[in-house]
């Protein structure tokens, strides 16, 4: 198996707030890895370090086997010019969609191929249509975000990320801002992607979805990966007290009867 993402000893501090305290993580090609943890445990921060929306304070990140950044005196040095190609190979879906409101769905999806990949107009249009169709929005290509439901907006956002044909997709609570009745369509889109073999790193509170989609689940606690394993190992037979406490807090997810 090939590694798409490798993280070693990742640290991130905001001033005196030491949020990530040495994360090690490998995501193999085609895997869907789910990150769970309490609010404020650093899940978003970890995802944002993967595409360098945040600059790690320490540690190393490899994408497709290549170390990101330059080493200088043992520390890492990240230049914007090195990070742009990284970001264009890593898709990210945000909790609040962050669609460009002055562009139609199609223009949103074409923006990356056009300005970053500099594809021809015809290719951009083709990609726009291909990925909107993929997320089931062929009918909404010319709609502006304000005329779309939350679920549709989030699917456009997924298409926008996919149009870059990324090696890895990051999802940061992609359904948390949605009305309950719209959550399903977005989770289904994500599930379809996983089934097609997209490599994904997902932060979610939807534990049922996590259970059905993931190859591996990581429980983040106090800046470290406290426990990790298969969905069964983490969600059904967690070995750590903290993990069990966290899961008990999720009333909507009932653990199948298990011998603790």
């Amino acid at each position: 198996m090939t590694e798409v993402l490798r993280i070693e000893n990742l640290h991130k501090s905001f001033g005196a707030n030491h949020v990530l305290k040495g994360i090690d993580l490998v995501v193999e090609k085609g895997q869907a890895v789910v990150l769970i943890g309490a609010s404020g445990s650093g899940k978003s921060t970890l995802l944002r370090c993967v595409n360098f929306l945040e600059t790690p304070s320490d540690g190393r990140v490899w994408l497709d086997g290549t170390l990101v950044g330059h080493q200088s005196n043992g520390a890492m040095d990240y230049r914007e010019s090195d990070l742009i190609p990284i970001r264009s190979h890593v898709g990210m879906v945000f909790q609040h969609f962050n669609l460009f409101p002055h562009m139609t769905a199609r223009q949103n999806v074409m923006e990356g191929p056009r300005t970053v990949l500099r594809l021809s107009k015809a290719e951009c249009i083709e990609r726009g249509e291909k990925y909107l169709r993929k997320v089931g929005l062929a009918e909404k290509m010319d709609a502006y975000p304000s005329h779309l439901s939350g679920g549709q907006q989030q699917r456009v956002a997924i298409a926008r990320a996919l149009a870059m044909e990324p090696r890895l997709m990051l999802f940061d609570e992609a359904t948390s801002a949605l009305d309950p009745e719209l959550v399903g369509e977005v989770l289904q889109t994500m599930k379809d992607l996983a089934d097609e073999g997209m490599t994904m790193l997902i932060v979610t509170h939807e534990l049922g979805f996590a259970y059905s989609v993931s190859d591996k689940i990581l429980f983040l606690h106090q800046g470290l990966i406290h426990e990790q394993g298969t969905p069964d190992e983490i969600l059904v037979r967690p070995s750590q007290t903290r993990t069990r406490e966290f899961l008990r807090g999720h009333a909507t997810f009932r653990l199948p009867d298990a011998e603790f």
């Binding site: 742009i84 264009s88 898709g91 945000f94 962050n98 669609l99 990356g112 970053v116 956002a157 926008r160």
Partner: peptide, 14 residues
């Protein structure tokens, strides 16, 4: 909103 900068950055825009 900051999210607009981030969304653009996340697809690789300078």
């Amino acid at each position: 909103e900051r999210g607009q900068w981030e969304a653009a950055k996340a697809i690789g825009m300078a």
